[in-house]
């Protein structure tokens, strides 16, 4: 997977940051507008997937050399999985009590702990989908 032409690479480099910001917006405004952690997390994963498709798997330096390839692959996927487990453990604590003060409904800083839940669910979903995609791509480049 060598990547595409220079035009595609440059346009992707311009666009993916905007897509990432849009995903963050969807996650943060999950309690006000349609969206939330699930949709925003998938959009964030989509921005990284766009980068991998346009630039090739070397963009994440996952198989730079034969010796280091497994180390980098392992480290990259381990980081994503660590974030995923962190999101899993931090996102939904045991008793779901709304700890933080509520604020007035309709503002950005309101709804107590729901935005925090949304952020961690977004991280978990993004990490999960990105590791699924990277597993398929690395499997393809291996043989």
């Amino acid at each position: 997977m060598k990547g595409m032409t220079i035009i595609v690479k440059n346009v992707t480099a311009l666009l993916s940051g905007l897509i990432f910001l849009y995903g963050c917006y969807i996650v943060l405004h999950g309690h006000l507008t349609p969206g939330g952690g699930f949709a925003g997390g998938i959009i964030i994963a989509g921005s990284f997937i766009l980068l991998v498709i346009a630039n090739g798997i070397q963009y994440f330096r996952l198989n730079k050399e034969k010796e280091e390839s497994s180390l980098f692959e392992g480290a990259g996927i381990f980081c994503f999985l660590l974030l995923a487990t962190g999101g899993l453990f931090l996102a939904v604590p045991v008793f779901f009590k709304n700890l933080l003060p509520g604020g007035t409904p309709g503002e950005l800083l309101s709804a107590g702990i729901i935005p925090v839940y949304n952020i961690f669910i977004g991280i978990e979903v993004a990490a999960a989908l990105l590791s699924i995609f990277l597993a398929f791509v690395i499997f393809k480049t291996e043989d």
Partner: peptide
């Protein structure tokens, strides 16, 4: 719940499990 979006309120507060 303080959440204007009812789906998010149901998903993360009433039915967090």
């Amino acid at each position: 719940t303080g959440s204007v979006n009812l789906v998010t309120g149901v998903l993360l507060d009433y039915r967090g499990f």
